[in-house]
Write a protein that binds this DNA or RNA. Structure first.
Lengths: 349, 349
DNA sequence: CTTTCATGCTAACACGTGTTACTAACTCGT
DNA sequence: ACGAGTTAGTAACACGTGTTAGCATGAAAG
């Protein structure tokens, strides 16, 4: 496959040139298929044959150095160790990213930024020119970081919108989606509805989803009991704690909108512990439609978030940005959500 | 933070040298803190001050080119698009990898190899010298690919052992772990036990876990009903299908060992559809202890696989390999598993 | 016979860094 | 005063590629 002799030495374009009996320049011109230049078909063949014979693969670092393109993008995660480990969405995002990246022959670098050293880490990646651009997942940015990013010279796309930022982003309409979910509960006759957010309010999407809850309630003329609004923290355990405290508060409710399936899993565990059954005693609507939602017991009614499509769009947007297609700047993409009705909700009789 | 004027031009070590009034060499020597060389403290200060003032960050590509180290490792996934998207373990592996990598100031590149183009893709990454080494997750390798990898000049660590390979790997003792799980069921008095594997037998770990099942049954003198042994395919849906076909086969069983929590989730859905309750009608033991196992209804008894620790060990092993610490070659790490007893099993009376 | 022009290819530079060999100046013991 | 040794720093090369300017050669045009 690689020729008879096993070569441990690095094969460079100079070696190919020597074997083909041409100059290194010609090798480069032929293998990169440069247009508007004249090379005889025989020479082309000689070069290509030599390259195959030697198993020549151009050095990515050298290419990057001279072309000033690394052909790599970065996915930057901005959450804690623990939240990354229990993120049910990460696989979908990675899968989506890899698919699109591969189509464009681009590599994906993944990095994790501890919140304390945010800025320095952003810059390290950016200024070291290790990547051509980056995607920030679930950004939680203060004004300083946003400004630093906007003024930095590295193309950036956010997954999740950030108020006050001019950076391009990809997202769903969280307000409208949450409204859809809560409206469904209201249509089933529920009036006393609890709301557990997906994350603390400083994270993207969290306040929007709670706002959607409020909007739906207001439209239906149902009062919002503030004691039934609670902020979780991404993982099932936080959902468990939220639901437990809601139950212990003694406030009455017949349904709950949980703005994350992952959190809902924990919330349901708390209900079970209190001998409350879903949907007979409490109706539950989730958000995200993680792969396990449909296999939950009972199957969880939820809002489907097109995670893979979001990642793909983010990647496409970023690649356009990198290629300098103007008119893409400050642009954004909003994808549609869908209410998936399963069996975790029941009408009030 | 970066000085008054916003510089869009790239800052090189030459610029730093000019500002500090020294040669580029001196800049390199100072900033890399090269030992055994004499530079006066005042010059050192001048250089460091100039570097900070200009916001100098060395170009990673240029460094890689000259040092022949990219300071990046690759995580290579060898499964289908869909299996990656629904992999409950990927976040933990990534989390573990990132932690260890960050400690050593190493970046992580993630790539995905469609099974058809396996070899070419391996080599592309390796020969292009984009990474210093790679970790292969859930390898499914035929002999040709193994040999190609062994003879390639890129350090490689497998996550999951492969029979007949000399490559270093990180794994648990799958046979023993499965034995532990099934022994637990046997101790509870079960004799007619079904076995659903985590994956097709050509993948690592799958045959081992089934073998563990057989061993435990043999030791207890319980006959293995071959019609109750079934191979799933990573995701819940395959578990659902397996369990459904087991139920439709008409063969009697009181418990099932499911060699993957992810698969078990689907299997449980099939049981529920058949109006069978866990653990009252059927006892269930899973494998992996994914984050959702403890929040399942009922909480799933399972074998805990130390996924993050495995990733960390794999990373450490790889870094040793890259640094050329001999004595680490052909080495491997086996981590311990643990039976986590929850509420999905019941004793036979 | 000279001038123009296309063809086929190459020498030479640039990218930004790490590192080795070397030099100039200065100290010091005798 | 003089060779020996230390100190502080630099010039020059290497890494492997992409790209521009230019050089022969031969053919066509005047």
């Amino acid at each position: 496959m690689k020729g008879p002799a096993l070569q441990r030495k690095r094969v460079t374009s100079r070696d190919v040139a020597k074997v083909a009996g041409v100059s290194r320049t010609t090798v480069s011109l032929v293998l990169n298929n440069v247009q508007g230049i004249q090379i005889s078909p025989e020479t082309r063949q000689k070069v290509i044959r030599a390259a195959n014979e030697l198993g020549y693969v151009p050095d990515a670092m050298a290419q990057a150095l001279v072309s000033r393109r690394t052909k790599a993008i970065g996915l930057v995660l901005t959450r804690t160790h623990h939240h990354i480990a229990t993120d049910a969405f990460l696989p979908k995002i990675i899968s989506g990213l890899l698919t699109t990246a591969k189509q464009h022959n681009i590599r994906t670098l993944i990095d994790w930024v501890e919140t304390e050293h945010q800025e320095s880490a952003y810059f390290e990646l950016a200024r070291a020119k290790r990547i051509d651009g980056m995607i920030l997942s679930t950004p939680r940015l203060d004004d300083k970081a946003i400004k630093a990013l906007e003024s930095a010279d590295i193309p950036t796309v956010l997954m999740g919108s950030v108020a006050g930022s001019m950076l391009p982003f990809v997202d769903v309409d969280n307000v409208q989606a949450a409204e859809k979910a809560v409206s469904y509960l209201l249509e089933l006759g529920h009036r006393e509805i609890a709301c557990i957010s997906n994350a603390p309010p400083e994270y993207t999407a969290a306040p929007e989803r709670v706002q959607g809850f409020r909007n739906a309630m207001a439209k239906a003329g149902a009062p919002v009991n503030e004691r039934l609004v609670c902020f979780a923290d991404f993982d099932p355990e936080s959902g468990y704690r939220c639901m437990k405290s809601l139950l212990e508060s003694g406030e009455r409710f017949t349904a709950a909108f949980v703005a994350s399936d992952n959190v809902a899993i924990g919330a349901k565990a708390a209900l079970r512990e209190a001998n409350l059954r879903v949907p007979d005693d409490i109706s539950l609507v989730g958000f995200d439609d993680i792969p396990w939602a449909m296999y939950s017991d009972p199957p969880l009614t939820t809002i489907r978030l097109p995670a893979e499509a979001l990642a793909q769009q983010a990647c496409t947007l970023l690649l356009n940005l990198i290629q300098g297609k103007e008119g893409w700047e400050n642009n954004h993409v909003i994808l549609e959500t869908e209410l998936i009705v399963r069996k975790s909700c029941k009408a009030i009789q």
